[in-house]
Each structure stands twice: as structure tokens, then as C-alpha cells.
Simulated scan of single mutants.
Amino acid sequence: MAAAVKVAVTDINAAGGVNGKPVVLVSRDSGDASTRTAEASFADLVKNHADVVVGPVSSALAQRLLDPAQKAGVPLISPAAGYPQLADQPDFFRTVPAFGHEGTVLGSLLPGKGAKEVVLVATQEALGASIAAPLKAALAAHGGTLAASITVPLSGANAAAIAGQAKAAAPDAVVLATPDNGNLSRSLITALSSAGLGGTKLWLTGQNMADYSQALQGGMLAGVRGILEGAAADAAFQAKLKGATSGLGSFAYAPETYDAVVLAALAADLAHDDAGPAVASHLVAASTGGIKCGSYAECVDVLRTEPDIDYDGLSGTLDLDRSDAPAVASYGVYAYDGSNKYARSGTVRF
């Protein structure tokens, strides 16, 4: 993701910069949720006159930076933070959709794969709850049915009883929406598999998709599938990323990160002003409604003769909606092998 920012800044400056001036990149560490590094780094970026901050990638850290960002008038654009609680927050934008959009994706995808009757097993908190309504609506629109929606406590869950409830609904597929790959997810995966609802019947979601090769019995996840937000980086973009940072082994969220930088630059061009409030007020306009363009250079060229643009980036058609997140997004479809590791098998956009 840091490499993607470098590549985007290089491309923008090669096209003449923003409002005729080169973009200056200042990078700081966000740390993790156990430290106050994010707050200290953000304060330092403000001190160094940052107009826009791309990040943080963690939803938990994004929540903590909302107040300082609003006070400083510096918009945050996250390429990976999916918490539903982050929607409609002043000065916060993202180039990935909120987690609940996975309900729309799965509800649109599963009936076409023969899964007409679907059971949702989701936690009670906001992350799990956000997927239920979109899943039900999308299934209905594509000839499917949400046969049951089973809520799970974050602690003290009776995994065997929950699997029994799911089995009683006789589903074609089970969607598991739990917040991580910890004990709760592992116990539910094990119980669902024992109840005959594993393999190709089980779908994981973006929060609990993980490498379970050391955590679960060998072969337990064979055939299990899942989705994870994020466009695939093509070979040309991968080469540019490797040129910016050697030794890269993953390209996750790189397209979304690149697009966050370009979108901010185009917003500043539209506003004729690179100050944070001006950028924030033009980000949505840069992503939708105008003349379509697919790169910073192309969009700047359009602006020479036209007043409005619609940037479609490496992650696809952005079209930021009222919640300041993409209305449509790319998702990888993944499949697990006998070692309980997953690999991307395709891409869908909903």
C-alpha cells in the first residue's frame, strides 16, 4: 500500500502535479491499536502541513483519528477500513465499501452458483449485523431466500447448537460473518463442518478469511470459499509497485490505495485549491457524474476543456455515494485447498 502511494505520487507529478505544483509525500507509521502511534503520527503530519492523509488502513485506528481529523480540517481517505460505523463521518472517505456491502455481493453471487436457500451466521455487534439486510435484499432480487439469520454472541457461543440451527434450515449455503479468525470463527467452522455444512456449502467473509493451516485440522476447509474486498493488481501495476518497493509479496489494497491518492489530487484540481476542506468538498464530484477518465493525466487533460470528471481508477468504477464510499466495488472470490490456505479464483463487481 505504501508502494502504491509512491507510484501514484510519481504518476501525478509526471503529469504536471496538482494545480501546477508537485505533490510532496510525507509518510508516517500508524502503529497498531495497542499504541498511540497513530495519534502522534497524525499530529506530526498536521504540523508538517499535510493537506490529505491516505489511511489509516485499520478501521479501529480510523475511528480514533476521526476527531483529530475533523478538528484539523484534514480529510482521511482509507483504502481498507471497512467498519460500518465509519459511514457518514465528516472528513472521512474510503475507496473500499463498508463491510455490510458484502451482503449485497454474496446475495447477488450465490443464487447463480446454485445456492438459493442461504443461512447467515453473524455476530450481534455492528460488523455482523450490517450484512444481514443487504444479504436478504440481494438474495430476493436474484431468486434466492435468506432461510435463517442466526445471531451469535461474541463470547460464550454454543457452536454445536448454532450449527444445529443452521442445519435445520436445510440451506444450500451458509455465510459466516464473524469479526476475525479467532476462537469464535474456528469453533463455528469446526461445528458447521461437523454438521455437513462445510466444504462448498460454507462461505467466509472479509473479516474471517485467513490462513487456517496451523489453526484447524488439515483438510477441514477444503472447498470452502469466501470473498474479500479489493481489486486484483494487474502485471503492469505489480511491476511498478515492485519498482517502488523491492521484495513485495502481496498487492492487497494497492489499487484502492493508488486511487485514493489520485482522487485526492483530482479533487484539489477541481477545487483549484489543495487545502484539506477544499479537497474534502470535491472528492465525491471527482469520482462520479462527469466525463469518464482512467488516469490522472487523462483526467487533467479533460479538465482543460470540461468542468467535470468521473475518475474510474485501478480499483474500478469508484462513484463515491452518500456515505463517501464506493457504491460498486471489486471483490476477490477465494477458494481453500486441503492445507487450509486460500487462493484467489476470480473477481466479481457488485
Results as ranks from 00 to 15, higher is better:
324 D>W: 07
180 D>I: 12
139 L>W: 03
18 V>N: 00
74 V>C: 02
76 L>F: 03
307 P>H: 09
261 V>Q: 01
44 D>S: 12
198 G>F: 08
255 P>I: 11
341 K>F: 08
53 V>E: 00
322 R>W: 12
228 L>W: 10
314 L>V: 09
149 S>A: 14
289 G>C: 08
314 L>H: 02
268 A>G: 14
143 G>R: 02
261 V>W: 01
34 S>P: 00
338 G>V: 13
76 L>S: 01
187 S>C: 06
341 K>C: 08
295 S>R: 11
178 T>A: 09
134 P>M: 09
5 V>C: 14
135 L>D: 05
283 L>K: 04
98 A>F: 09
323 S>K: 13
5 V>L: 10
163 A>I: 11
266 L>K: 01
197 L>S: 11
161 A>F: 11
183 N>Y: 12
56 P>R: 01
19 N>L: 10
190 T>L: 10
51 D>H: 10
342 Y>Q: 07
40 A>M: 11
182 G>N: 11
132 A>G: 09
104 T>A: 15
14 A>V: 07
36 R>T: 14
345 S>K: 13
320 L>F: 09
57 V>C: 06
187 S>V: 05
166 A>E: 10
29 D>E: 12
109 L>G: 09
252 A>V: 13
164 G>S: 15
163 A>N: 05
296 Y>Q: 07
47 K>G: 11
210 A>P: 01
176 L>H: 02
261 V>N: 02
287 S>P: 03
154 L>F: 04
119 V>S: 00
7 V>A: 08
162 I>M: 05
82 G>N: 12
146 L>V: 13
21 K>C: 06
269 D>L: 07
340 N>R: 09
48 N>I: 07
7 V>D: 01
263 L>S: 06
311 Y>R: 07
225 R>Q: 15
40 A>S: 12
124 Q>D: 14
194 S>T: 15
109 L>M: 15
174 V>H: 03
271 A>L: 04
174 V>A: 06
66 L>Y: 01
189 I>A: 04
139 L>V: 12
181 N>G: 13
228 L>F: 15
271 A>I: 10
190 T>Y: 11
51 D>A: 14
1 M>S: 13
173 A>Y: 01
201 K>W: 01
177 A>G: 05
